[in-house]
């Protein structure tokens, strides 16, 4: 197996790229702040306008970090799912994790009004939404793990995941139908996805969760590589299939679930970045893919967010639209250029 050394240069380049995108992201926004002031803020020096200081420290930097965390976790969970299910169409949400989160949020925001008629149309706080989403994806995860212990076939698991998704989507639509418009609006805005809402406390919590997920993903690298030969070969190589399956599912749930809870269901990144990375590095080896996918995920998310902010204008676009608009052509272009799907 090729060692990491072969890829050292490539890793240095993409790490620098990540750093560059991070700086670009925090220096561009609706309000144009001179570069000098940005540097002063980052270095903790006196800044001309107090609002600039606040915008950079409490809006842009948390947002950029959230973007990186989101990109990393969704891409890694996409990679894990694609290898586990040996299916290029799998993504972080095939197990119904995002629909579980959506159900949690929908129940929380809209369920109340279903029970009490009009009810005071209180806007639900950000943290409560995150908790509801976490609970929702956790319940679905639990269901999946129980099913996974009963089902031997990984493909059946994939289909069961999709079924869970359909059921939760149906419940959400019933809830949406009966709720009042303010709550529906709040739910819909959550489902658009949003990176700019996390306070520093929340970022620390999210970072912890993502790190736990990433560590589990790194532990899975060995079994993921053996799974490249198929489950039977993997078993003959001493991989405990059932155990690694749990490990991979749990890692995915933590990564995708926690991110979805905080920033909403972000489309596309999880599906596209693993493909992108495979095409660029031309290897299915997870020693390379896991770190590379994480970094590319961060880069792509930062770029998407920078575009979504429409620098210089007062408006901004929903991040979910941008991830697909930017991401899809890149994947198409790579596939057409190489004329061959590398999976």
């Amino acid at each position: 197996m090729k060692s990491l050394k072969t890829y050292r240069l490539a890793f240095i380049i993409i790490s620098v790229l990540l750093l560059f995108c991070f700086l670009l992201n925090i220096s561009l926004g609706s309000v144009s702040i001179p570069m000098k002031e940005i540097i002063h803020t980052v270095l903790g020096q006196e800044v001309e306008k107090e609002s600039w200081n606040y915008i950079i420290l409490h809006y842009r930097i948390p947002k950029a970090i959230t973007a990186i965390l989101t990109g990393c976790s969704l891409s890694i969970s996409g990679l894990l799912m694609q290898t586990l299910f040996r299916n290029p169409l799998a993504g972080p949400f095939v197990l119904g994790i995002s629909s579980g989160a959506s159900l949690g949020v929908a129940l929380f925001i809209m369920g109340g009004s279903l029970l009490t008629g009009v009810a005071a149309s209180l806007i639900v706080g950000q943290l409560s939404i995150a908790i509801a989403a976490t609970l929702g994806s956790f319940v679905v995860l639990l269901a999946i793990v129980i099913v996974a212990s009963k089902v031997r076939d990984t493909m059946a698991l994939l289909i069961i995941g999709l079924m869970f998704g359909s059921i939760t989507a149906a419940v959400v639509s019933v809830l949406s139908y009966f709720t009042n418009k303010e709550k529906l609006q709040q739910y819909i805005f959550w489902s658009f996805g949003n990176l700019g809402n996390l306070s520093w406390d929340q970022i620390i919590l999210l970072t912890t969760l993502v790190l736990v997920g990433l560590i589990l993903a790194v532990i899975s690298i060995k079994s993921l590589n053996s799974l490249l030969l198929g489950e039977n070969y993997a078993r003959s190589l001493g991989t405990h299939i059932q155990k690694s399956r749990y490990l991979i599912i749990v890692a995915t749930s933590i990564l995708a679930g926690s991110v979805t809870a905080y920033v909403g269901p972000i489309a596309f990144i999880g599906l596209a970045v693993p493909h992108l990375t495979r095409q660029i590095f031309n290897t299915p080896n997870h020693h390379v893919l896991v770190p590379a996918t994480a970094i590319y995920g961060g880069i792509l998310m930062l770029i998407c967010d920078t575009i979504a902010q429409l620098p210089g204008s007062e408006h901004s676009l929903p991040i979910n639209a941008i991830t697909s608009i930017v991401g899809a052509p890149v994947v198409i272009w790579l596939l057409v250029r190489k004329r061959k799907m590398v999976f």
């Binding site: 926004g29 609706s30 309000v31 609002s51 606040y54 915008i55 809006y59 842009r60 700019g196 902010q309 429409l310 204008s313 007062e314 408006h315 901004s316």
Partner: peptide
């Protein structure tokens, strides 16, 4: 109504 980015509202409306 129009939808504006948080930054620009803070800048203008602080």
């Amino acid at each position: 109504s129009i939808s504006l980015n948080f930054e620009s509202v803070l800048e203008k409306g602080q």
